[in-house]
Amino acid sequence: MLTDVFTLAQAEKEERLRGELIGLMAHHRRNCPPYDRILAALGAETEPATLADLPWLPVRLFKTRKLASVPDDEVIRVLTSSGTTGQVSRIHLDREAAATQSRMLARTLGAVLGPRRLPMIVVDRSGVVGDRRSYSARGAGALGMVNFGRDHLWLLDADDRPDVAALKDFLARHGDAPFLIFGFTFMVWRYLYEVARDHGLDLSQGILVHSGGWKKLADQAVDNAEFRRRFAADSGLTRIHNFYGMVEQIGTVFLEGPEGGALYCPDFADVIIRDPETWREAPVGTPGLVEVLSTLPTSYPGNVLLTEDVGVVHGVDDGHWPGKRFSVVGRLPRAEARGCSDTYAGGRS
């Protein structure tokens, strides 16, 4: 199976994506009347000259409008985001879209996990997955990741407490060879790092994939660099990959490279950083609003989305993988808190 999706230099990627995204824009206009009306009101061009000219939707629109490009009877799964105000995005997937997002997620993560399924620690409780037709973002994240592992240990018990004895048993059986760890960032810190530190556990063979939840860690003066430093110093864990993604572009993840410190775009996706005053693309090194582009959404018009996150591009074609290197540095002021573990307070959600 092909696993390497970090291959295209930026110019080649932009040319390829532009053609595919123009085709998807036409597809959604034919099959999603509300989307067609939005683009008509915007006076959107049918053949934008660059990626930056493609019309974007504000990601919040999925919280207030049903936007689907397939009939209701073809929808097999509805994903919901993790909002804190009662409003949640609802993302409608048909069978083809669900299969594609699973396949491309596997190819993306294969770049750091390899082709073989590894023994796996999930820093959550098994009940988070819930209903098999409708998932929260937290449940969808856990369900999407468990497919990459085997001999799973769900670290939290039914009362959301870490099962230290089970963790020690897992490490006794699997800790001398590579194993996979997945969780949302704050939960990984609270329920894995602190337990490993306090009990002197060796996680040096682990590969950690994590996302979200930086707000609570920022309150503890723990940024990405400190997170990595403390894990290495106190548990031996050094293979750590943060990722950025959202339920509105399910299956698309922007992955931290092996060197740490920056996120990369897979070949089927890209980011544009926009100046919040002019809406033009911001130059390298200048923070702005993060726009995410992906060819994966086919059952709903989520290909070009303006988020409420603030990010910055650090460089282009100058890192471990080709394309843009970028970071997400915060949220737009007054924007709703985002991410399952930002709202996780130790109880059921």
Rank of each mutant, 00 (worst) to 15 (best):
T3N: 08
D4C: 06
D4F: 02
R16M: 13
M25T: 13
A26M: 03
I38Y: 15
L39Y: 10
A40N: 15
L42E: 13
A44W: 04
T46Y: 05
T46Q: 12
P48I: 02
L51Y: 05
P58L: 09
K63A: 09
K63M: 09
T64K: 12
R65A: 14
I76N: 08
T80K: 14
S82N: 14
R90K: 14
L105A: 14
L113A: 01
I121N: 06
G127Q: 07
D131C: 08
S134M: 09
A142Q: 01
L143A: 13
M145T: 04
V146A: 01
N147K: 15
H152M: 10
D159F: 05
A165K: 07
A166R: 13
D169W: 04
F170Q: 05
R173N: 11
D176G: 01
F179D: 02
V188F: 10
Y191P: 06
L192A: 07
Y193C: 00
V195M: 01
L201I: 03
D202P: 07
L203F: 05
I207N: 00
H210I: 03
G213D: 08
K216P: 04
Q220L: 15
A221K: 08
N224H: 08
N224D: 14
R228S: 03
R230P: 01
M246E: 10
M246V: 12
G251S: 11
G251L: 11
G251P: 04
T252F: 03
V253S: 08
E259K: 12
D275P: 04
D275H: 01
E277K: 01
R280N: 01
V292I: 15
V292M: 12
S294D: 03
T295A: 14
T298L: 11
P301Q: 11
N303L: 03
V304G: 06
V304M: 12
V304Y: 07
E308W: 04
V310S: 06
H314K: 09
V316D: 11
G319V: 05
K324I: 02
R325A: 13
S327R: 13
G330V: 10
D342N: 15
T343A: 15
G346P: 02
G347Y: 03
R348G: 04
